[in-house]
Design a protein around this nucleic acid. Structure first.
Length: 651
RNA sequence: GCCGACGUAGCUCAGCUGGUAGAGCACUUCACUCGUAAUGAAGGGGUCCGGGGUUCGAAUCCCCGCGUCGGCUCCA
């Protein structure tokens, strides 16, 4: 049987040859270094016979094979972890332990009354190390389902039993599952589809990182298991570098930067609701100004609606039935009222306040809409998950014929915003959820319209089945935070249900009443979340146009304070957010403090500048860039501001 | 909401097995008048998250709340 190597050379192997044979046939060095072998994109253990079908493009994986190789030893490490846990905590029941991005985890059900925390890690790691040093081979065995079931029933491992039973019952009729694969290392036998490295010794460096709860099979109705996260590398150096990167990323955490830069704060007295400090408000307002201008230019008209409504409205909209758990209610003079969790019903009130003609459509309302949602306490997360949410909301009321163009317009608008910040967002199409209003025909129609708009623009997207809003499907824009967590920002949602529920209409060309379609749209998602992501994206070094303080005047000594103040006043009059540092500190100290505040421009003024009417410009990061006249500086910074220039590299 | 951890000055944190609180930075005052990332000295500042309990005595031990952090579920 012949195979094709990555360099194009053919490799002739006898029938029944394994991955190890292939590596040995190429060279003795490779035979030693080999971890696994990949044929036509599928990775196999070295000990398994190679597939004899397909194109047979063969690649031997070694430590140098990057993520694919790391995934192998991380998966190995998960097994070694479970092995150690079974020895150290008799009676522990094991669930699943896959490799994940940058590490692995294993879910365990600890015996009643037993819990573990990070203090237990050293002992567990020590036991893991013993198994790694023992160089236990990973042995794969395909056994009949009944044998595997007997084994795990006998060992009292109900999760493994459930997994096997599900494998069998979920198998398609034409390919029934008759055997499952088990991997043995040392005394530990795990149900696992593999692949694995040849032996435990290949794990050169590893570390347990955190312990957390996780529901069995990700369902909150199930028991909560104990999940331990860890990672593994091919060298201590790589591991250390990885941990350093994590540490570095934490420095860009918006919660930390928000505190340090005086952007916003939180109080125990109002969990999940940010307090915006003056510097944070400056960022907010810069963003709001951009939003207002761009919405205006795109035919949106700004509105403002109340936050408190009679529950009648929420019964009508469907929120009472589908969203009640996330809402806040109160009573006003014995009348039950609810805080709005969404702006759409409010905008419908505006729409239906007048008779609408097809000539009026599309009607586009935009609002910095303040909504309140009762997010579960465990989910709150700085600005990225709050209960007091200011959406950059908009609702478009249009005809059926206008839907595609309007959706496309929203996507274009989104692309404009994201490019402005150098974001690379992921698009997701979320389809009908279980909890929903409207008929299946409506949903078919709405989902198809979104797909058409995406395809017309040629945009790549993933499908997120079942994740739509209760009133319609949506296209979401996702971004990642400083430590790799993904958050939804923008959203474009199509809604045939809400117009129906509220009975809104427009008069058509035919003089008959028709039902408009609604498009719900937010591009930042919320000002809170967007500013949180922006803060992390820029590491607190905002582009000049949105920097809380755009320039600070630093007098060399007291006698330059008056000139410094005149410079500050001049810049302020020109609309630049500018401060004067008149403290009795050394120039070095003032510079240091301004640098730490990430102020884009520091204007040093001493005798020389005072005499010549100039400012000594120091740019954040770049350093001293020389003295220029105040006019020249104003022109420079004015241009950076008016063009919304990206003046700082993304973090 | 669920699992685990944590909660000491504005911030970052120390405070061992219980004996009524400490550092650095920040802040205030004074002196210095300084040229591109920290001038020096002195001083002020704490219901040790809240409430119960154990104890002669609790920041420290126990219980119950609240909040925060990391996950899970959920979500803009």
């Amino acid at each position: 049987m012949d195979y094709l190597l990555p360099n194009g050379d053919p490799l002739e192997l006898p029938d029944g040859a394994t991955g190890a044979d292939a590596a040995a046939a190429i060279g003795p060095g490779l035979a030693r270094a080999a971890l696994a072998v990949k044929v036509d994109g599928v990775t196999y253990d070295l000990a398994r016979p190679l597939p004899t079908h397909g194109e047979r493009r063969l690649e031997v994986l070694t430590e140098r094979s990057g993520e694919q190789a790391l995934e192998l030893i991380r998966h190995d490490a998960a097994h070694v972890f479970a092995e150690a846990m079974l020895e150290l905590y008799p009676g522990v029941k094991i669930a699943i332990g896959p490799p994940i991005e940058s590490g692995f985890y294993y879910d365990l059900d600890l015996p009643a009354g037993v819990s573990i925390n990070e203090d237990d890690f050293p002992a567990i790691e020590a036991r893991m190390r013993e198994h790694i040093e023992a160089d236990e081979p990973f042995l794969r065995e395909d056994v009949p389902v009944a044998v595997a079931l007997d084994r795990y029933r006998g060992e009292g491992q109900p999760y493994k039993v459930e997994l096997i039973e599900d494998l069998v019952s979920n198998a398609p009729a034409e390919a029934p599952v008759e055997t499952v694969s088990l991997y043995t290392n040392g005394s530990f036998v795990d149900l696992c589809r593999g692949p694995h490295a040849p032996s435990t010794r290949r794990i050169k460096a590893f570390k347990l990182q955190s312990v957390a709860g996780a529901y069995w099979r990700g369902d909150s109705k199930n028991k909560m298991l104990t999940r331990v996260y860890g990672t593994a590398f091919f060298s201590d150096k790589d591991l250390e570098q990885h941990l350093e990167r994590l540490e570095l990323a934490r420095r860009n955490d918006h919660r930390k930067l928000g505190r340090e830069l005086g952007l916003f704060m939180f109080s125990d007295l109002s969990p999940g609701s940010p307090f915006w400090q003056p510097h944070g408000m400056a960022v907010w307002n810069a963003l709001a100004e951009l939003w207002r201008e761009q919405n205006g230019a795109r035919g949106y008209r700004e509105v403002k609606t109340p936050i408190l409504y009679d529950v009648e409205l929420w019964k009508r909209s469907g929120h009472w039935d589908k969203y009640q758990e996330n809402m806040y209610f109160t009573e006003v003079e014995e009348r039950p009222m609810g805080l709005k969790p969404m702006n759409c019903p409010a905008h419908i009130q505006l729409y239906s306040a007048a008779r609408r003609s097809y000539r009026d459509l599309p009607v586009r309302y935009s609002e910095q809409g303040l909504v309140h949602r009762h997010e579960p306490s465990g989910t709150l997360h700085g600005l990225l998950r709050v209960r007091h949410i200011t959406q950059d909301d908009a609702h478009i009321f249009c005809t059926e014929d206008q839907v595609e163009d309007e959706v496309l317009g929203c996507l274009e608008f989104g692309a404009f915003i994201y490019e402005l910040f150098g974001f690379e967002a992921r698009l997701e199409l979320s389809t009908r959820p279980e909890q929903r209003v409207g008929t299946d025909a409506m949903w078919d129609h709405a989902e198809a319209a979104l797909v058409r708009a995406l395809e017309r623009r040629g945009l790549a997207y993933e499908v997120n089945a079942g994740d739509g809003a209760f009133y319609g499907p949506k296209i979401d824009l996702h971004m990642t935070d400083s430590i790799g967590r993904s958050w939804q920002l923008g959203t474009v949602q199509l809604d045939y249900a809400m117009p129906e529920r509220f009975g809104i209409t427009y008069t058509g060309e035919d003089n008959a009443e028709h039902r408009p379609v609604m498009v719900h749209r937010a591009l930042f998602g919320s000002f809170e979340r967007f500013i949180g992501i922006l803060t992390e994206h820029f590491g607190g070094e905002f582009p000049v146009w949105m920097a809380p303080v755009q320039a600070i005047v630093l007098p060399i000594s007291d006698r330059h304070n008056a000139y410094g103040e005149s410079v500050r006043a001049r810049l302020a009059a020109a609309g630049v957010r500018c401060e004067l540092d008149a403290r009795g500190e050394s120039a070095g100290r003032k510079i240091r403090d301004a640098e730490r505040r990430r102020i884009p421009f520091m204007l040093v003024v001493g005798d020389r500048e005072q005499e010549s009417g100039q400012v000594g410009v120091r740019e954040h990061r770049a350093g001293d860039t020389g003295a220029v006249s105040i006019e020249a500086f104003l022109q420079h910074i004015g241009e950076l501001i008016s063009t919304l220039a990206l003046t700082t590299p993304a973090a």
